[in-house]
């Protein structure tokens, strides 16, 4: 028996919004430590890794490890049926071929359940090596989303250059060129507005704007985003989900032919 309950459906809607543009389907691996999903996008350029810890749920029970392959488009249709303040419970029997989403209104007067067929997905888990990154940038997630959106107008690729002075995002194409420089903030009213840089070595890497823009769909999950970079390895874009876990996106860099 698997059962996981969240007080607010909003968080699950936001999580789905953060992955459904990149992935058509995904396998949710459930164990007593929580729920994990790891999947590559169709073109195998990026990897999504979602971790939701069991202690972050209002209720969590997982008697036997189960892997639930879900069509994320179908899951999105079901979650659209939940109000933001509904409680959501995800339930499955051991060895079941369906999963049930139950939504309860705050006053418990409306209860709906939606059963969805599970899929058998060929899942291939990739090993992600432990890496000491040369540069780790933390910045407001909305600022990162804005920069990705703005620079994507100029080119399909974006250069990210990180030094101890700051981080620079650049794009150039037929229209011209664009540069956005962010310096480390000295003092801020709110922690969420801070830009901080931990640098061991300066790094310059090129990435596809299309994927960066897809990652920024996770912005509603967290006020801050963390970018971890080293030369010639995938970028990690991490959004923490308060008290519940995180979503990490890995993006392979572009290289000079």
């Amino acid at each position: 028996m698997f059962e996981a309950r969240l007080i607010s459906a909003t968080i699950l809607k936001k999580i789905l919004d953060a992955i459904k543009d990149l992935l058509n389907e995904g396998t949710f691996d459930c164990s007593d430590s929580g729920i994990q999903l790891q999947a590559m996008d169709n073109s195998h350029v990026s990897l999504v890794s979602l971790t939701l810890r069991s202690d972050g749920f209002d209720k969590f029970r997982c008697d036997r490890n189960i892997s639930m392959g879900m069509n994320l488009g179908s899951m999105a249709k079901i979650l659209k049926c939940a109000n933001n303040d509904d409680t959501v419970t995800i339930k499955a029997q051991d060895n079941a071929d369906t999963v049930t989403f139950m939504f309860e209104s705050p006053n418990h007067e409306k209860v709906s359940d939606y059963e969805m067929k599970l899929m058998n997905l060929d899942q291939e888990h990739l090993g992600i090596p432990e890496t000491d990154y040369s540069c780790v940038v933390r910045m407001p997630s909305m600022e990162f989303a804005r920069i990705c959106r703005d620079l994507a107008q100029f080119s399909e690729s974006m250069l990210i250059c990180c030094t101890k002075e700051g981080v620079k995002f650049s794009a150039s194409g037929d229209v011209g060129s664009a540069n956005v420089k962010l310096a480390q903030t000295s003092s801020v009213d709110k922690e969420e507005e801070a830009v901080s840089i931990e640098m061991q070595e300066p790094v310059t890497l090129t990435f596809a704007c299309r994927y960066l823009n897809a990652f920024t769909k996770a912005s509603p999950l967290s006020g801050q985003v963390q970018l971890s970079m080293s030369a010639d390895v995938p970028l990690v874009v991490e959004y923490r989900i308060q008290d519940l876990g995180h979503i990490r996106y890995y993006l392979a860099p572009k290289i000079e032919d």
Binding site: M40, S43, H44, H125, G127, I255, E256
Partner: peptide, 14 residues
């Protein structure tokens, strides 16, 4: 000209 690498050229199947 830049070319896009695949994530599988960095991370191998477990």
């Amino acid at each position: 000209k830049m070319s896009q690498r695949n994530i599988t050229s960095f991370f191998k199947p477990k």
